[in-house]
């Protein structure tokens, strides 16, 4: 009688191989189909922001007074604005700023948050108390007001906006990292790492941080859209990117001014903005599924 094929252990891939682990992560992530759609949407957004030069049919700043307030057509897919500028080109270019501030501020936030949070969590004691009181103080600041003051002080450059947005947003991240580090630090495997002769740095990088990453990554997917929001909000109050450089917040506020006569000027940028924010939430949900080991594989 022929032996069943599964008896040959070598034939099967080992259950913990890197490839299979990756597929397990993906399977959990894609359990929520919206997460996949959101991820695809974000990738498309980032790509179009990066390739804005190649993609846009018209220069985003060039006025064309022969084609003002045109409704969407084959020439201008999203219509044109009061100066005859192509809305599609302007929307794509405005994504650039949104992405720069959204992702850039998140990088700053993550770096500062990881640094302060892990220092506070790992060292503890007085260092922890001092750092966390600093966090509390910054947390108590009205963050948007703080951003406005910073922009006014530094100037309306993209760098100033990036600094202004990240100046207050790191506190949440620092708290999350700290609570994670404190939780992981008490694990038995940290004791084991110390027992094997790991230095504090090795313990942090190889043991503490990888095990703290779940909630941190989820927080990142919510931080990026929050940053984009702040950036757009700065534009709304007139402190964002200097016109004529297009910006989602500015496009929306201009569109809102003429919503009764030319609704498409509001609808497209607002829709795109809303979808972007929504996509990040969906991706965040997907990531939460990946890291939530309690609800089964």
């Amino acid at each position: 009688m022929q032996a069943p094929s599964w008896t040959t252990a070598e034939a099967r891939p080992s259950p913990g191989s890197a490839r299979l682990r990756r597929s397990r992560t993906w399977r959990r992530f894609s359990k929520n189909r919206l997460s996949v759609i959101g991820l695809a949407f974000i990738v498309a957004l980032v790509l179009s922001a990066l390739l804005a030069n190649q993609l846009t049919p018209y220069p985003p700043l060039a006025p064309n007074f022969l084609a003002i307030y045109q409704p969407p057509s084959w020439q201008h897919w999203l219509g044109t604005d009061a100066l005859g500028r192509d809305m599609l080109s302007r929307v794509i270019y405005s994504l650039r700023n949104a992405c720069i501030v959204g992702f850039g501020a998140e990088v700053v936030e993550l770096t500062v948050g990881l640094l302060l949070g892990s220092t506070a969590g790992l060292i503890g004691g007085t260092v922890d108390t001092i750092l966390m009181r600093v966090v509390d103080v910054v947390y108590g600041f009205p963050s948007f007001l703080f951003s406005i003051i910073l922009v006014v002080m530094i100037g309306h450059t993209i760098l100033a906006i990036l600094i202004a947005v990240s100046a207050t947003s790191w506190v949440g991240m620092a708290r999350i990292v700290r609570s994670q580090v404190i939780q992981v630090r008490q694990s038995a495997y940290i004791e084991h790492a110390r027992q094997m002769g790991a230095s504090t740095w090795q313990t942090l990088v190889r043991y503490v941080l990888p095990n703290s990453m779940g909630p941190v990554l989820v927080a990142v997917t919510f931080g990026i859209p929050a940053n984009m929001m702040s950036e757009a909000a700065l534009s709304v109050v007139g402190l964002g990117i200097q016109p004529p450089t297009p910006d989602l917040g500015e496009l929306i506020i201009i569109g809102q001014g003429s919503v009764l006569s030319y609704p498409y000027l509001l609808i497209w940028p607002a829709l795109l903005f809303a979808l972007t924010l929504l996509s990040f939430s969906f991706v965040g949900d997907g990531l939460r599924n990946v890291f939530d080991t309690k609800s089964g594989r």
């Binding site: 913990g16 694990s187 038995a188 495997y189 004791e191 084991h192 790492a193 190889r206 043991y207 990888p210 095990n211």
Partner: peptide, 8 residues
Amino acid sequence: AYLNPTRT
């Protein structure tokens, strides 16, 4: 408990 769950 004494092995790091995230590493082989």
